[in-house]
Design a protein around this nucleic acid. Structure first.
Lengths: 325, 325
DNA sequence: TTGTATGCGTTATCAT
DNA sequence: ATGATAACGCATACAA
């Protein structure tokens, strides 16, 4: 916190009362132009900037929000944080950030800490129980991202449409047996994705093999590649790009060319453009969620607000006709 | 900002003065155990938590720091932010974050905003002029990461050792002509890297071709691949992993197998383990810089403090003996 | 060992 | 149209 000129300094320099200075900044129209400019000049000369902390104490609103993510290092979150920050800046609002290292306890304490400094919290991919989150949200304004808890405003990054398009894309190419590599069982995203795949496969009469990547990592993706080759699937949809990347590496290591012998589709479209071959993936437009969440928080959105984002398939080079029909 | 129990509420409940409550939290030893527990019980019952904003106003220190990065979406920064946050949490200090979208003007205004809310700022890979940064640092405690401005404490993420090891590694494999693909001309990192390569090549009598990736991106890396094939180099060191990834994709697209016909080395070791083949890269341990910078800031490090981090080569699968000696 | 009083920088409520 | 003054929640110098 820096000691700069205070409102009192400006008031003295401009020969007016402190309250006048304060109001010149908020409602200049209420004053004679002469007074306004006198105050503004004095403020400029002294390099005066209002102290947000003092303002917070006086007004009861901190002009700051908190954003809590499981792991900043996960490439899924930075775009969300980025747009949230952009949006917050538009409203002259500061962003506090906390990384919970994927643990519920750290998440809880981080929220508690942030709550006392901010006007509300955006909780992304919470690892806590519904009950814990609800209890917290009853005391502090909260907006959820990627967690579907009735009673708390939330924005869900959906890939349902994209997943459906992915299956249809594969069916259109002539695939009749595909695999889905699932992510974290409890995750809302995973459940939505697998449901979409199930529905589309049923509708299009495709055989479906379901595999699991316990953790949505490159390493687990690599391990799954072996199992995948044991199935009769000619195409695979992975829980996310990271897993898809692992699968591609695993297949390559086993001498199976992608896409010739196996079509691969990722999800999130985060690193897909930088793989080789460039990965067909589902763009979830996750970054939009950051903006939406900030707006919801600032507008004190109704507790039943539930925004579901759109998504679509981005076809690149890893999906082709199956070798054997 | 949430309205919770205040120090006055606790004081009333415990039948003591406000100052007693305050001091029970800071120096419990000064009180009779009976008083201490009475206050603690009252505080616990009311769910009292000190208001950091009020404390900040009273003490003149905000118990918060700011961290300013050019682009959260760049995978280079999140690890730094992560460790900085971890370290700050250890000291019970909050972290405000700002993303400048790579522009000097946004960076300047972000720093100005953050300065009024925090006790100091960590400025990462600043895009501003030395003069502007110095001027700001004269008013507000600042620690630099990856910017070498005398007069401001700084931590530099060095890859000198790793780059030297990289050249030695290639020489050891039998390469006699290598290429270096440079990054942003003005960047401290780039200058340090190219100097290290120049020195090692001179010492080991290696021919060196220098190429440029105007922006350190995957796309520019791809474009460079063509030029690279026009040279007689049998190995290439890229400014960073992203460029290396682009080069690998470019080479693959032109039918040049890596590493058989071209050895490739990246830098930063951020995505290297997830490429295929896994990329030999230089681990710059960038994340350490976050911790170091926070410590420097909190300890009010001397203005001439200059920490240079270590680095080392991580050999994976993209570097082998040259085909033609 | 504990209580009283004051100030931190701002906004807001009265006045004038 | 502007000024005086009381909060906001806490820490601290000073008393007792």
């Amino acid at each position: 916190m820096r000691s700069t000129a205070t409102i009192t300094d400006v008031a003295n320099a401009a020969k007016v009362a402190r309250s006048t200075v304060s109001r010149v900044f908020s409602q200049p129209s209420r004053f004679r132009p002469e007074t306004v400019t006198r105050v503004q000049v004095a403020a400029a000369n002294l390099g005066y900037a209002p102290n947000p902390l003092a303002k917070a104490l006086s007004t009861g609103t901190a002009a700051a929000i908190g954003i809590v993510v499981p792991d900043i290092g996960n490439p899924f979150f930075p775009p969300i944080i980025h747009t949230a920050g952009l949006c917050a800046t538009r409203f002259e609002i500061a962003v506090l950030i906390a990384d919970t290292e994927e643990t519920a306890s750290r998440e809880a304490s981080a929220m508690e800490k942030l709550a006392t400094r901010t006007d509300g919290i955006i909780l992304v991919s919470s690892r806590q129980s519904n009950a814990a989150v609800l209890q917290f949200a009853s005391r502090v304004p909260v907006v959820l991202i990627n967690r579907d808890i009735p009673g708390i405003p939330r924005v869900l990054i959906s890939t349902k449409v994209g997943m459906t398009q992915a299956v249809e894309h594969l069916a259109g190419l002539g695939h009749t047996h595909i695999a889905y590599v699932a992510g974290p069982r409890r995750s809302w995203s995973n459940q939505e994705r697998i449901n979409a795949v199930l529905e589309a496969c049923g509708r299009l009469h495709l055989d479906l093999t379901t595999l699991k990547a316990t953790n949505p990592t490159y390493e687990d993706g690599m391990q799954v590649a072996g199992v995948l080759l044991g199935s009769r699937a000619t195409a695979v949809i992975a829980f996310d790009d990271l897993v898809a990347q692992g699968i591609m590496a695993g297949l390559a290591a086993m001498g199976t060319p992608v896409p010739k012998d196996m079509s691969v589709i990722g999800c999130d479209n985060l690193v897909a453009s930088r793989t080789y071959p460039p990965l067909t993936s589902i763009d979830s437009r996750a970054s939009e969620a950051g903006t939406l969440a900030v707006e919801l928080l600032l507008q004190h959105a109704d507790k039943d607000t539930r925004i579901v984002t759109e998504s679509d398939l981005v076809v690149r080079s890893t999906t082709v006709k199956p070798r054997r029909t």
